[in-house]
Design a protein around this nucleic acid. Structure first.
Length: 243
DNA sequence: AACCGTTCCAACCGCAAACGG
DNA sequence: CCCGTTTGCGGTTGGAACGGT
């Protein structure tokens, strides 16, 4: 067998394959490489095309909706990445698998401590270290994309969890500091509001806040620190959300 | 600047399923 | 049905990129 190249693809190789497939379509992966002038296996070509070169692929970070679908479907299907990928147009099974392992796996019931394992999260923690973060569920707030939330109107029905700078639970709105019960109270279509700082120390109108759509997959019966970790991760997953 | 540890993703591998003669 | 070939899937890994020291 002739020399077969392995490893990262060069832009020239990419272009060769794109040009060939555009002209002749995909007819046989194992024979195509030599006709296209590529020193690759058919398997390698197929993978490169499906995961990277295909024109209709979606690039960039996962949206909140996509994160939700991945998590939901993993709960019901397990590691059926190709089945999950069918629900996410433009995303590949490999991409979803990678995303799951790097962003979601650790929230799946493990009782690990909350540590900034990722670069992003380390940065997030570093930037938010100076004040107590606070998570509030505000069921009365309407409009999932409404950025100008007024907390004074909804505070009466809010539940809350406060944390210290190490994300240890300080206080909850119920009597027994039962975080799980608070999370379980949250329904579909409720909104979770994550505040950078305690609203008592800065006015509601000027506090930087974002709203997240709450989903039933979130009320996983997990260790409280995992709940916190998960909120933060979702926060990061939404590319339009910034500290 | 150099080194080290960690994270993440592209790409690999082995196996299974599907295909087709 | 059998068997060789092709395609698809999921687990794993190599290495680039990055942050910390």
């Amino acid at each position: 067998m002739d020399y077969v190249k392995k490893g990262a693809w060069s832009p020239e190789e990419d272009q060769k394959m794109i040009d060939y497939i555009m002209q002749y379509r995909i007819w046989n992966w194992s024979h195509m490489p030599k006709f296209a002038g590529l020193s690759r296996t058919g398997k390698s070509c197929r993978l490169r095309w499906i995961n990277y070169l295909k024109p209709d692929l979606k690039k960039g970070p996962f949206s909140m909706e996509e994160v939700e679908i991945v998590f939901r479907m993993y709960q019901s299907l397990g590691n059926k990445w190709s089945a999950i990928a069918k629900e996410l147009p433009g995303r590949t099974d490999n991409e979803i698998k990678n995303f799951y392992h790097t962003h979601l796996k650790k929230h799946h019931g493990r009782k690990d401590e909350v540590k900034p394992k990722s670069r992003k999260k380390a940065k997030q923690l570093e930037m938010s270290n100076q004040k107590k973060p606070l998570i509030t569920t505000c069921p009365n707030i309407e409009g999932p994309n409404d950025q100008s939330l007024d907390f004074t109107n909804s505070s009466s029905s809010s539940s809350y969890i406060t944390f210290d700078e190490n994300y240890e639970i300080l206080e909850t709105s119920n009597q027994d500091n039962d975080v799980t019960s608070i999370v379980n109270q949250v329904h579909d279509d409720d909104n979770i509001v994550i505040l950078e700082s305690n609203p008592e120390s800065s006015t509601s109108s000027s506090s930087s806040s974002v709203d997240l759509h709450i989903n039933d997959f979130m009320d996983v019966s997990v260790h409280s620190s995992n709940v916190v970790d998960f909120w933060l991760e979702l926060y990061l997953a939404a590319d339009n959300l910034k500290i």
